[in-house]
Nucleic acid binder design. Sequence first.
DNA 1: TTGAAAGCGCTAACAT
DNA 2: ATGTTAGCGCTTTCAA
Lengths: 362, 362
Amino acid sequence: MNFTYLSINIFILIDNPVVGIKDIARLAGVSIGTVDRVLHDRGRVSAKSLKKIQEVIKEVNYKPNLIARSLVSKKKIKLALIVPDFKQDEYWTQSQKAVEVAKDDWAVYGIQLDLFLFDLEDIASFSRATKKALAFKPDGVIVVPIFYDKGLLFLKKCEQNNLPVVLFNTHLPASKTLSYIGTDSFQSGMLAAELLHLSVQEKGKFVVLHFDEELTNSVHMLEKEKGFRAYFMKEDANKMISVITVVLNNTKHEYQQQLTSLLNKKDILGIFVSTSKTYIVSEFMEQKKINTIKLVGYDLITKNIDLLKRGKINFLINQNIERQTELAIHTMSNYLLYKQIPEKNIHFPLEIITRYNVLSYL
Amino acid sequence: MNFTYLSINIFILIDNPVVGIKDIARLAGVSIGTVDRVLHDRGRVSAKSLKKIQEVIKEVNYKPNLIARSLVSKKKIKLALIVPDFKQDEYWTQSQKAVEVAKDDWAVYGIQLDLFLFDLEDIASFSRATKKALAFKPDGVIVVPIFYDKGLLFLKKCEQNNLPVVLFNTHLPASKTLSYIGTDSFQSGMLAAELLHLSVQEKGKFVVLHFDEELTNSVHMLEKEKGFRAYFMKEDANKMISVITVVLNNTKHEYQQQLTSLLNKKDILGIFVSTSKTYIVSEFMEQKKINTIKLVGYDLITKNIDLLKRGKINFLINQNIERQTELAIHTMSNYLLYKQIPEKNIHFPLEIITRYNVLSYL
DNA sequence: TTGAAAGCGCTAACAT
DNA sequence: ATGTTAGCGCTTTCAA
């Protein structure tokens, strides 16, 4: 359907009829079977027919009806999803929900999703998951490569097996991956810095707080830290930045001690928590009646939302893990079904959430 | 596809095969014709069959194969889009681009989009556009009802003609519209207030600045203003708020004079511009070398983006007009094709844009 | 090397 | 009120 713009509100519709495989067959004087063989390069076609058909195809600007095509295609495609276990973690639970939805959505198209979960705090479990995933002989792999070295190793293996790979949430520098889907961690750190900087004019210190479970071996939290530092280098070089890493998988007592000694320092203006576990810090501060320190963290999970609404957390940066998950599956499926080559990097917007726009995100 | 969690990394896959209309017919002991009649609410089905079939549908969690559905449906559907002329305005150009994309996307499903443009500064052109739209005998209407009275009048006419209507960008209180798609203007005003408030600690005055072309007769800008006032009522009642309306469609000289006299007042801390024309104020301030006044406005249009990056505009609230447009068309199409009843109000997130996350939105 | 025909899941017209 | 059937555009099998 084309149109020519003549004047406001008046269009001429030039309805060039949609041509199909049948039309091509008629125009070329052959059967649709032969046309199909040409279209799919399946040989067993005389040179003469081949030439004629190709000419016609070109002339009528044939575009296959993808809807009809996917209706008929019966091939089963298996996708392996290698993602963090969602049981203890609301962030990954959100991802999991997106997987469940996608599973239903894509089943119709013959796409089958197989899940391989690993423990965020256990590198070995990641290796096990990747091994099992490969054993399943999937047609494509979608992975959250939390662990740097093991991640790269796995990607190499996929490359050897000619398996297409899509990453999400955590970036890894591997040239052969089909696509990375997620936020730009460095930029995200810069943004966090700006939000804190905006909230306080005074002199003092800022803290970057990592929870260690993901930190081990993981790049994207370090990228956030780099971005955070870079901001102050550029905008306010006098600000002191300190970094602490809190070890969560120890006893409660231990990390509380760490936090206590941190918060006792009097000149701290703000804290940037590099994961969705922001609420842990915020709850701790609330309990200790510390109100002056500004807090910026990540993601719209229940506890964070509550604390944000009550003004205990100043900003959240939403990474939109559901949409990342959904898009990762979508991207891989479209690649395998329709040979749609995706962008190498699909960066998600860094969504700033305050208590005055949080409702509009829920 | 269900699974039972046994232990980490081990799943039992219960591959409940995709059920189709044929399976439902078999399970309910009727023919596919009857099932189809139930699915599409076309009556002529006995109460008994109806109940049984509905039960089965629910039980097997039937999901229609949209591919097959759209392959078969040959009916042509005409949609009338009544939207502001995009020629003078980048905001509406973005909307227009979304229309062009949607046009291609939906053509396959037999949906034809007809455009009826009107001039933002000319109420009469709106009336003309609506008249022409109706003359086209569309199956559904998508409209941006900038002008309050004429808008309501038109909606009443649509109701009389039994035409389904979707609104976007501008809300209008009309009970019979299928859906409003856009931001919550009141909330948006509150957010703007918070962003300004955050940026300045001192005492002083804030200004709400409307450009008049859209203001005449239009509610959503007044809603923004209300939200803005409500914020300070709640959070910082001592702040003075003044409101000015700048008349843009007069000579340049005139509105510059208005701005000049406004900016001469010494105690102004920040300005909230209620439309995407934020750049006009910012450029003016830049030219007059005014750096201290904070500026919050709307939308990611080229000039705004540039000024935001250079720190001249402090925040933009993105209304995402492309996605609004896209979703409006999507909503109406799905309603007409598949009788999908949308939510009455689809509120878009209020996206906060600063110079540190703007890149992630482009 | 080619053509004819079945069928993907669904809709809608038609027959009963 | 219900069942049967043609056919949407394409792929694929099978027979010629």
